[in-house]
Design a protein around this nucleic acid. Structure first.
Length: 590
RNA sequence: GCCGGCAUAGCUCAGUUGGCAGAGCAACUGACUUGUAAUCAGUAGGUCGUUGGUUCGAUUCCGACUGCCGGCUCCA
């Protein structure tokens, strides 16, 4: 589909969904005549509408509302656009406080604003549109109400909580079915489900929001860290390790005490206040300050895989994606202003290398000076221009998020697109002119004077744990061979094949390959089934024939069989894939 | 934190109006000795998340707490 067609289709769906949300509001008001309506926009994949109702909605209510909607769209009700005066509007929406507030806001923004309503049947709503021509254009079987949830009026926790009904609608029943199927498929990849099934990690009531990594999950975690470490070594990074608990005075100095206190954990040691680190920068700044630095040493690239704790609201915790403790693959580059550009360029290359290793595409976003920024506009302009120049020179497309930068500097965020098209923000590059000053960091320049270095914060995986979760969903649990905790499942057919199977496992182990031997008293079919469910990339089947000929037979994860293979040959093929860190499994072994 | 839902065996889940708690898989024992996604039989396994209350009696009804799930950004 070309872009124009895509936009047209998007617009058509938006009209459909927005119109359906009006129909839903009509249905809800028929059931609850005293209900108050708030807003009801079209959203990605559907729509919602917020209501204030006399009681909480139940799933039965949803079914009833849906049935009502399906009846409404069978009528010949045209959508009628009408422009109204502010006085008319206020009269029309008497008794609808949320609408009145919206009207007042619109007029406050622009006293001459044109207000409009859309009517269909006896329902009308303050609305800019656009809408369909007639409710008949909505296919009854293509409507589905999904769930009801709480939502603060205007997203503000200090304002009343409304009931939000989420629904979806498509141009046909078939499209609805396809969509629901996609949702089901996405659910099958849920890292929380796969993490449990594959014995990667767990969560315990004793530590909400703090993952427990099991043996296999830890293996992947370590692999990620060592993969990134290898590149850091190549790129001349230093790697530090700083304490988890640091004195309050440090956090006062860094500004975290003022800006980040609500998300921090505290403790008292020997009558003194300490905080558990929510970020690694202050610790690494202390490391920098342990000695005097010359301009000749710069840039200093100081990495740390630092475990940070942040107190997130209990209601937002979610698997590995939203946690209260995680390991940042953090680094701080201390450099001169002149070196900034080259360093950022190098970081973009770093990101590119890591993300393409896992087959991710990515999008870039540049966030600029926020309202409450620290430092002069001049220095911000320099920082923003530097980032822009680098992006242009690197031939990267990017989107600008005006005013979305950190209070200490602008940043570039990397959004990965996974195998089923979902976006995940992972990497970040942030320019910081504030911390070095606050901490009185210096280097001796060519002119024999003290200068303040520029600091670049960066993370590539972001959170190692979260990235692992993204990988689980991206690969649906089928990890590339180099990172799969169990690469090979060895399946002896009968007990008298165990000795040979053991020997095979020893040889694999000596070759650096990870295998598990299934010696349960089960039939081969049962063992294959389990190996398949465990998502083992390769299975080695060992029976009479293999023992007699000193060969192996392979079954790949997708069920292909390769018989009479020499073990050495197989090992070579595996080692090659591991070495190359291939994404796709070699299923031919030719 | 707030709104709504959920919490039963290691896992996935049943449990009818309140009356001694169930299945499948897994585990264990035994038999079977098997060629590309589940061999058969038997055994054991539960303070029904925690805690108060109502009741002769609570997994079931009511309250509190804890945890998990879906939301709380999409601006008429």
């Amino acid at each position: 589909m070309d872009n124009q067609k895509k936009d047209a289709r998007k617009l058509a769906l938006e009209k459909l969904r927005h119109s359906t949300s009006h129909v839903m509001a009509q249905a809800v008001l028929e059931i609850f005549p005293d209900g108050k309506v708030a807003i009801g926009p079209a959203i990605e994949n559907g729509f919602y509408y917020d209501f204030e109702l006399p009681r909480s909605l139940t799933p039965e209510d949803l079914a009833q509302i849906e049935a009502r909607m399906q009846a409404i769209v069978k009528n010949d009700f045209p959508f009628i656009y009408e422009e109204i005066s502010s006085a008319q509007a206020k009269k029309l929406f008497q008794g609808q406080p949320y609408k009145i507030e919206l009207i007042q806001d619109l007029l406050a923004k622009d006293p001459k604003a044109v207000l409009s309503i859309y009517k269909h049947s006896d329902f009308f709503d303050l609305c800019r549109g656009p809408h369909l021509e007639n409710v008949r254009q909505i296919q009854a079987p293509a409507i589905k109400l999904l769930h009801v949830s709480g939502a603060y009026w205007r997203g503000d926790e200090k304002r009343p909580m409304l009931q939000r009904i989420y629904g979806t609608v498509w141009s046909s029943k078939k499209e609805l079915k396809t969509y629901l199927h996609q949702v089901e498929e996405a659910k099958k990849r849920d890292h929380r489900k796969l993490g449990k099934e594959m014995d990667l990690f767990s969560f315990q009531e004793e530590a909400p929001g703090m993952p427990f990594f099991h043996h296999k999950g830890t293996f992947i975690w370590n692999s990620l860290v060592s993969y990134v470490t290898d590149i850091m070594v190549r790129k001349n990074y230093e790697i530090n390790k700083t304490p988890f608990i640091l004195n309050k005075s440090l956090w006062l100095q860094s500004g975290h005490w003022d800006h980040y206190k609500n998300n921090m954990y505290f403790t008292k040691i020997d009558e003194q206040d300490f905080a558990v680190k929510p970020m690694n920068c202050p610790g690494n700044i202390l490391v920098y300050k342990t000695k005097q630095h010359s301009y000749r040493e710069l840039p200093i690239r100081a990495g740390e895989f630092g475990l940070v704790h942040r107190h997130e609201l209990s209601g937002v915790l979610s698997g590995l994606f939203r946690v209260r403790c995680f390991t940042q693959d953090d680094a701080h580059v201390f450099c001169t202003k002149e070196q900034m550009k080259a360093e950022i360029k190098d970081l973009i290359d770093f990101m590119d290398e890591v993300y393409s290793r896992f087959g991710f595409q990515y999008k870039l976003e540049l966030s600029t000076r926020p309202e409450k920024a620290m430092g002069s506009k001049k220095i911000w302009d320099l920082a923003e221009d530097t980032l822009k120049e680098v992006l242009i020179e690197s031939k990267k497309k990017y989107k600008i998020n005006e005013g979305d930068g950190a209070f200490y500097g602008p940043k570039i965020d990397f959004h990965l697109t996974d195998a089923i098209g979902r976006d995940w923000q992972c990497g970040t590059i942030q320019l910081d002119f504030q911390m070095p000053e606050k901490f009185d960091m210096t280097y001796i320049g060519e002119d024999n004077q003290k200068h303040c270095p520029v600091m670049i914060h960066r993370a590539i995986l972001g959170s190692v744990e979260r990235f692992l979760g993204v990988l689980v969903e991206h690969f649906a649990g089928h990890f590339p061979l180099w990172i799969a905790p169990v690469q090979i499942k060895i399946i002896p057919i009968r007990e008298d094949h165990y000795a040979y199977a053991n020997k095979v496992q020893e040889i694999l182990k000596a070759a650096g390959l990870r295998s598990e031997l299934d010696v349960r008293d089960e039939r081969m079919q049962a063992k294959i089934r389990v190996a398949q469910l465990e998502k083992a990339p390769y299975m080695i089947i060992i029976g009479d024939k293999e023992v007699a000929e000193s060969k192996i037979s392979i079954r790949t994860k997708s069920g292909k069989n390769i018989n009479d293979l020499g073990l050495e040959n197989f090992i070579e093929k595996c080692q090659k894939q591991v070495q190359e860190k291939s994404i796709e499994l070699d299923e031919t072994l030719a």
